[in-house]
Design a protein around this nucleic acid. Structure first.
Lengths: 212, 212
DNA sequence: CGGCCTTTTGAGTGTGTTCAAATAGGGTGG
DNA sequence: CCACCCTATTTGAACACACTCAAAAGGCCG
């Protein structure tokens, strides 16, 4: 099994000097589509760093509704919890590779890198709140696409790794509304689709105005 | 000016042993209703701990919509940011007292207490996401009331410190919908009102089922 | 008591949902 | 390489819930 250094990059900062590393040894692990990494309530003794692919974190409601709280892309660290038990579950959206490390070595003495990471996660969650609170379907989808495009490397061409259902569960909409909204954004010239998982964003400035 | 020790309690743990303190000296400060503590973009060099009253944190959208991201109750610590600039504004909901401390003494070497606090804030934000994602008005209002009742001391009688507009902006609803929903919950026997800011929760178990 | 602000209630509208069916896309085996 | 099947996505029609605009009722403070 390959052993690698688990580097926790600061998701907020820019420039080389801001990178910080945790001296923790991790083990690479491959995941197939929809493979469960951990469930709600599981013991939270491991943390993960994405290498390739995409993982979704989510919580389930009793009636089966699923709220996806985040998508983890290459470079992202996830799975750090305050409590011993997982508050969210995590699954691979598509084939993925992650580096796994024991959590215990992290919590005892949280350092600068871990701190910055946690605050980055917090910021992401707060942005999500802003996306979900009283915004139209078009605003939600637009901000989702812009965010994803930026995180995937800042290009205006994105290959959606997740299904419409995933997007719907992330944005608090139904799959039909997501689909209709994408069609609408296309009709208005904001996006151009080459296959339903392959989009090109256009008129980024105007699109951004939808999101504030 | 009174000087006090700024104690950051762990919001997640129970029992006396779990309390941890930061050795930071703070200064008490009084606030009147609607008084701005800091605005978005302000320098984020201070942190706060609630002593009495309630403070709201929020973000504004360009069109004037306001998303309240949280209400801070006595004992809560707020205002810790990763970046130098505030990502949220904060105002007193009602007359309030806070302890103010310099942030610089906290970030350099984040310790266990601060870490647990930050993770508590994160958890709160993630719960908020769950409340906002595809839940009915009744579910949102019910979970808000239950959360508030618990944080205010676990009693079933609560004096709402904030206006209907505040609640609406927190839950992503309109003021009219909040009002109608409270009326509905009352008609169904879940709450009993003695004045519009003074509620008594009833049938807590059934009410909780609305929230999962 | 009067004025002002908050909250409630009413009526009509609109956006997103639900249920249903058609279409497109991707993978597999022949 | 193509046909087929299965799933994902799109589209359609009717409905429901929350919103908007408007007015009445309730509280609070001078």
């Amino acid at each position: 099994m390959p052993v690698q250094r688990l580097a926790i990059d600061n998701p907020e900062s820019t420039g080389a000097g801001a990178r910080a590393e945790l001296n923790v040894i991790g083990i690479a692990r491959g995941l197939v589509r929809d493979q469960l990494l951990f469930a709600e309530g599981d013991s939270a003794d491991l943390v993960y760093k994405m290498v390739t692919g995409v993982v979704r974190s989510y919580r389930l409601l009793a009636d089966g509704r699923r709220q996806i709280t985040g998508f983890h892309l290459p470079g992202d660290v996830f799975g750090i919890e305050l409590r011993h038990a997982r508050s969210e579950a995590a699954e691979a959206v598509a084939e993925a590779t992650v580096i796994v490390a024991r959590r215990s070595s992290l919590t005892a003495e949280p350092d600068e890198a871990l701190w910055r990471h946690a605050m980055g996660v917090l910021r992401r969650s707060q942005d999500h709140v802003l996306t979900l609170g009283r915004r139209s379907a078009a605003e939600r989808v637009a901000s989702f696409l812009l965010d994803l495009a930026q995180r995937l490397g800042g290009r205006d061409e994105i290959a959606l790794p997740m299904s419409r259902q995933d997007i719907a569960d992330y944005l608090g909409l139904t799959i039909e509304t997501v689909s209709r909204t994408l069609t609408l954004l296309q009709a208005r010239g904001f996006i151009r689709a080459r296959g339903c998982r392959h989009l090109r964003l256009q008129r980024l400035a105007t699109l951004s105005e939808l999101c504030e």
